[in-house]
Amino acid sequence: MNELIVRPEITPDMFLPIFTISTLVLVFGVAYAATITLAKMGYFSKKWMNLGYLFWALQTYSLYLLSVWIQSEPFTSKVLMVTMLAYLFIPHLYFRLIEDSDRRYDSGNNIAEQKN
């Protein structure tokens, strides 16, 4: 290499951390959704929801690291963090929706179509 070119460049030893962290983003994301789901469904007590929030925090941190390691623009990193804040509310909105729709469509016990 004759001259040094300054530009965003992923060095070979950074690939493994990057792939690992992006997998962790989704794994923690699922763990968060799963914990909240199972707690809301009553498979285990509401106390476990705190574990879910811990997963959310880990996910947020992983995404932050990912954005730093792939050398995103500072603006992009900020957008990602705002997105993660939104993700904190999604399961709650989701279950609100499930409960409301259950109450609306499944309460009357009407066996309208049970044809098989």
């Binding site: 929706l97 409301d100 729709s101 609306r104 469509y105 309460s107 009357g108």
Partner: peptide
């Protein structure tokens, strides 16, 4: 279906 407070979110 005659449920009162029908939310738009479940519509």
């Amino acid at each position: 279906m005659a449920n009162k407070n029908l939310s738009v979110w479940t519509s």
